[in-house]
C-alpha cells in the first residue's frame, strides 16, 4: 500500500490531487490501494505517441472506510492526460465496479475527467461502456454508486454519461458535468452557438450550481473535502437500487425538464423560470446564500436517477 500524502480537509478539492482528495475524504489510514503505482500497470499505448506514462494510469482504486462503513473507492487524476479514460485507467474502474456488484459493496467515484483519452480512443470508449454496464449491474444488485464532481478537469464526455448512471451525485460550484465540452461545441457549431472562452457562460450552462438547480446533482457542497465527506456519508445511508420504477420516474423527470425549460437560451432563463429571486446574482452567491435561494425552488431528482 502506498502511503497517502497528508492533506488538510479544508483545502480546495479543485486544487488537490486524486491522492490528496482520498486522504482527506476517507477515514484515517483506512485506504488500501489495488494495483498501486508500484505495480507499474501503465498504458500500453502512450509510448506510440511519445507521451509519458503515469504509474497508476491516472486513477487510484481501492477499498476504504468512510465513517467506518466499508466502501470501494476510485479517484481520477485530472492533471494526468486530463483524467481521460484509457484502456488501463478504465479497466481498473470496471474491475472495481464488477467486484462491487458481486459483493454488494457501495462505491464512491471521484470524477475528474475530460472523457475519452484520444490516443487510445477506441479502448477508452469501450471502457466507458463497460463501466456503465458494471454500474447498472451493481445498482440492480442494490449497491449505491456515488459520484463526487468538483475536480479541475470537470466531468466531461463519457465521464458525464457515467455520472448520469450513478445513484447519487455530489457537486461543488467548480464541478462541471457535460457530454460535449465547450471547445468541442464551438469547433463543430461555431462561436455563435457556444463561446468557449466565455467562462461565466460555460459555468451557467454546465457548472455545479446549474446542475444542482435542475436536478442534475443531488447535493451542492463547498469546494473542500469536509463538504464532500459529509454529503457522501449522508448519501451512503440511503438505499436506491436501480429498478424499472426508478427509470420510469427518471423518464418523467427528464421529460418535465424539457417541457419546463426547453426554450431557455441561458442558465439565467432556467433559473428565472424556477423562480429564483436574483438569477443574475446567483453565480456570485456564496454556498449558504445559494442553497437558501435554491431551497424549494430547485428541481429535485428525489432518487429518480
Amino acid at each position: 500500500m502506498t502511503a497517502l500524502p497528508h492533506h488538510n480537509a479544508s483545502t480546495s478539492w479543485f486544487e488537490a490531487t486524486a491522492r490528496q482528495r482520498l486522504a482527506a475524504l476517507l477515514d484515517h489510514k483506512s485506504f488500501a490501494e489495488f494495483l498501486g503505482p508500484e505495480q507499474r500497470e501503465t498504458s500500453p499505448h502512450l509510448g506510440l505517441f511519445d507521451l509519458p506514462r503515469q504509474f497508476d494510469d491516472g486513477i487510484v482504486v481501492g477499498r476504504a472506510r468512510l465513517d467506518n462503513r466499508p466502501i470501494f473507492v476510485a479517484a481520477q487524476e485530472g492533471r494526468f492526460m486530463g483524467g481521460a479514460f484509457g484502456e488501463v485507467h478504465g479497466a481498473k474502474l470496471t474491475g472495481l465496479l464488477r467486484a462491487a456488484g458481486i459483493h454488494r459493496q457501495d462505491v464512491v467515484l471521484l470524477f475528474d475527467t475530460g472523457g475519452v483519452r484520444l490516443q487510445e480512443a477506441n479502448a477508452g470508449e469501450l471502457a466507458i461502456s463497460e463501466i456503465i454496464r458494471a454500474i447498472v449491474e451493481a445498482r440492480i444488485a442494490g449497491c449505491s454508486v456515488i459520484g463526487l464532481i468538483g475536480g479541475r478537469a470537470g466531468c466531461y464526455g463519457g465521464g458525464g454519461i457515467i455520472a448520469g448512471c450513478c445513484s447519487h451525485l455530489i457537486v461543488s460550484e467548480q464541478g462541471r458535468i457535460s457530454v460535449s465540452g465547450p471547445e468541442v461545441i464551438e469547433t463543430n457549431r461555431g462561436v455563435e452557438e457556444f463561446d468557449s472562452r466565455d467562462r461565466a457562460f460555460v459555468w451557467r450552462t454546465m457548472g455545479g450550481k446549474h446542475r444542482y438547480l435542475i436536478g442534475g446533482a443531488d447535493d451542492f457542497v463547498n469546494d473542500n473535502a469536509d463538504g464532500f465527506r459529509a454529503a457522501t456519508i449522508a448519501a451512503l445511508a440511503k438505499r436506491q437500487p436501480l429498478t424499472t420504477s426508478v427509470l420510469e420516474a427518471e423518464q418523467k423527470r427528464l421529460a418535465n425538464r424539457l417541457d419546463r425549460f426547453g426554450q431557455a437560451q441561458d442558465g439565467i432563463d432556467v433559473w428565472t423560470a424556477l423562480g429564483i429571486t436574483d438569477p443574475v446574482g446567483l453565480p456570485g452567491s456564496a454556498t449558504e446564500a445559494f442553497l437558501e435561494q435554491a431551497l424549494d425552488k430547485r428541481e429535485n431528482a428525489n432518487g429518480a436517477r
Binding site: V179, S180, I185, N188, M206, G262, A264, Q265, D266
Partner: peptide, 12 residues
C-alpha cells in the same frame, strides 16, 4: 452538440 442540449443536461 449544442447549447440547448448541454443546458438541459444531455449527459443525463
Amino acid at each position: 452538440m449544442s447549447r440547448h442540449d448541454e443546458l438541459m443536461g444531455l449527459s443525463e
